[in-house]
Structures are given as C-alpha cells and as structure tokens.
Design a protein around this nucleic acid. Structure first.
Lengths: 221, 221
DNA sequence: CGACCATTTGATATGGATCAAGCGATGTGG
DNA sequence: CCACATCGCTTGATCCATATCAAATGGTCG
C-alpha cells in the first residue's frame, strides 16, 4: 500500500491532486448519499465549536472555510469548488466555520460512517491520510503567501483561481473583494488598488469587478 | 477505533498532544532503533528535495525545519524538542530542510519500515493520521501568528517556548535571534527591539540574550 | 426608483524593513 | 593565556508598503 501523497508543492499540483482524489474510496462514499442539500448565498454550513458530524463534497457553487480572529477580523482558510471535499481536517468540534460563497449544493456524509469504513479498510484510512496531507500542503502554500508583497499575493490568487475554475485566462470570481482580502491577509482597499494597477499596466482587464481576464502573464510578475 | 485527534487548537493543547503521542505505536517503533545519532550545531539533517528515507525522533537537543524562499530568505516551520517526531509530513522527496539548532541526538527510523507496519495495522495508520493532523493544527496556529503585530508574535513565541521547555517563566532559548525572526516572519532588528521594549516595561528580564525570564504576564499583553 | 451593498479612489498615518554603526560574547591560533 | 577575528545582538535614522480614514461611484434587487 502507498501512503505518501504524490505530487509537488505548487498550487498547480494541488489542483491535479484535487482532481485525482475525486475518484478515491473516500470520495466514493458520497455516491450513496442521495440528492445534495442547497445552501443560499452567505448561509452557514457549520460553525466553529459545533460538533463535527459530516464531511462535505461540493456538487455545485463555491464555499469558504474561515476562522474569526480574536480582534473580530476573519481569516479565510480556503475556497472550495465542485468536487472538493471539506470538513475533514476537523476534530470532534469544528475548529473553523464554513459558509456558502454563492448559492451551492453539497453532498454530506456522516463522519461516523466514514470512520467505521476506515476501521475496516486500510485503503480508506490512507485516503484520509492523503486528503489530510493535501490540506497540509495547501496550508503551507497559503502560509508562504503571507510572506509576499500585496502585489504578489493578488497575482498568486488570480493564478490559483484560474486553475480551480479550469478557466483559460478568463476568470469569473464567485467571491467579493472582502473575501479575497480575508484570504490574502490584506484590506479590501489594497486588493482593489493592486487590481487597478495591474489593469493600468495591461496585465489584466476587468470587464466587471467580478470578471477578470489575464491578458499578459509576463507582465503579472 | 478512534481517528479524530482530540484537543483544542491552542499551542498549549499542541504540547499536551506532543506528550501523549510519545507513547503511541508510531513512537513505539523508535524503541528498537539502537543508539541515537549525533548532529553538531547547525549541521544538516536532511535537505529540501532529498529522498525522504527516515522519520526522526529527538532524543536530546533542538532541531528546526525550514524552507528557503525564492528570494533567499528562509522560513522556519517549526522547532522540535526531545520527544518530538518530525520528517513525517514529507513525501517521497523532502519538501523542507532540517538542521540541528544545538548539538543534538536523533533516533531515526526508516520510512519503509513505518509504512509496512502501517499496511498491517490500521492503528499505526491512524496514528500517522493523528500526527499529520497535529502538524496541520500547528501550521494553522503558526499561520495566525503572521496576522498579528510584531509585539504579539514575540510574546506568543515566548509563551510557546515556555511550554515546550516545561520551564516556569524561565526560558533558556536554544536558537539565535535570526532563527526567531525567521520563525516569526520578522527581521532580527524588530525581534530585538520588541524584546528590549518588553524588558523596559518590566514584563520580562534578560540576564543574557539567550535567557529570558517572564516577570509579569499581564504586562506581556 | 430608491436603498443598500460592493467597489474604487484619495489623503494620511504608521509599523516594520532597511541601512548603518557600535557593542558584546565567544572561540581559535599564536 | 591573551589578542584578535568572527559572530551575535542591540540601537539609531530613515524609508516605504500597507493600513486606516473618508468619500464618491457603481451595481443590484426589492
């Protein structure tokens, strides 16, 4: 049995992994859970401190996990897109909250069920281990973002979004500026200014605030 | 079988977990590895990109894991103390480097051996999962550090060190200022200035640069 | 249409980085 | 065992990136 997760530490690799894990035994457990549940925009999926009863898999839409910091700001850990699984990294109680970024549909599966399958099958456990390693890798990469300049953070974010949405230079952002800022550890104003400066340098164009077209990759850096 | 890791997300909890994991099956694998290997101060234990052949457990001394960033700076992920296990979060190739902070002694165990035990026993796998979750928790907590002010980062670091060394207000730091700065995402100068200001506020005292006494906890914040 | 939310833009403030210099400790070789 | 070289630490002066505060503009939905 193979336990170590394959792949490299770039966000590019991270997405290759996301794809491949879609068909793992863990992901397979979602097959018999019936129709997905709908969540309206900005509605809570679970909250910090609540008992962690389910794992979730995105059927459609976009969700965010975040933690509210001592001073009231929120830090967004990750955005999730169709096929992604989340709720895994949690303990008996959730250590972060999750909300719907857009209207979205989620498959939910009881953790108890996953855990009992894990007890029977090494393959399921090692898939859980692989998913956790993936989450760790994602967090490391997110961590390194915080050591970069505002400009670099925004560019990295745009490239990540391009990959996640399998868009080719044409990105339709599901989240508002405030979410981007909370993900990048910046303020809304700074995000807006960096985007404006990228546009005036002709590296990107913004037909609308939510739609961003990557025009010139070399100018991005 | 229990898979979820118990405990809360504070660095305090992290240390409770460290302790308790010392006696897990994974840790137990280190029992038959013979005498520990010695590493001199600042010597390399493994380097980024090298094949990941061993897991390590600290017998004595202190080690650091880090990654060299694109611009040449280094980011320290973690310091490890006696009883701690590291090298686990790695893949076939190490994604970070490890060095001895002080002269230290390490037990090493082949990853192959751990993995073959894991294939036989899902108790071992779920311990690996628990250790990985612990690493994830540690990274999240480290991440949140970077969103704080320089003052808060240094104070948090001092409290962490107090816990790690089981000292009661009297901390003997094994690492130089540069290491602290690289762990906190600050410059040496800023670390030095914050410590100086804490001392002049009588929150701490520094008999020597490496020895720090926490005098007044309420003044720390 | 009007209200509210999201976004942009401008002016100013500030925390920490950077550059520069001096001091202290530690260890090595003569 | 001392002298000097090196490394680690501190302190000062200045600069700059990003936060903060403030206000105007744009978009969307009831």
């Amino acid at each position: 049995m193979r336990i170590a997760v394959q792949g490299r530490s770039s966000s590019l690799a991270r997405n290759r992994q996301r794809q491949s894990l879609t068909s793992t035994p863990v992901a397979g457990l979602f097959d018999r859970t019936g129709p997905p549940t709908r969540y309206a925009r900005n509605h809570s999926i679970f909250g910090e401190g609540e008992p962690a009863e389910y794992l979730y898999k995105i059927a459609s839409g976009c969700a965010r996990t975040f933690k509210t910091l001592d001073d009231g700001r929120r830090q967004i850990w990750s955005f999730y897109f169709p096929g992604d699984i989340f709720g895994l990294e949690e303990r008996q109680q959730h250590s972060s909250s999750a909300e719907a970024v857009t209207r979205c549909e989620l498959f939910a599966i009881e953790r108890k069920l996953v855990m009992s399958r894990a007890a029977e099958s090494n393959v399921v456990i090692s898939q859980l281990l692989a998913l956790t390693n993936l989450e760790l890798e994602r967090t490391h990469s997110h961590f390194r973002l915080l050591l970069k300049t505002a400009h670099e953070r925004v560019v990295t974010f745009l490239l990540e979004m391009e990959k996640c949405k399998n868009a080719r230079g044409d990105i339709d952002l599901p989240m508002i500026r405030q979410d981007i800022a909370a993900y990048l550890g910046l303020t809304v104003e700074t995000v807006s200014r960096v985007l404006a400066s990228l546009e005036s340098a002709s590296a990107i164009s913004m037909p609308t605030a939510r739609r961003i077209v990557l025009c010139n990759r070399s100018l991005l850096h």
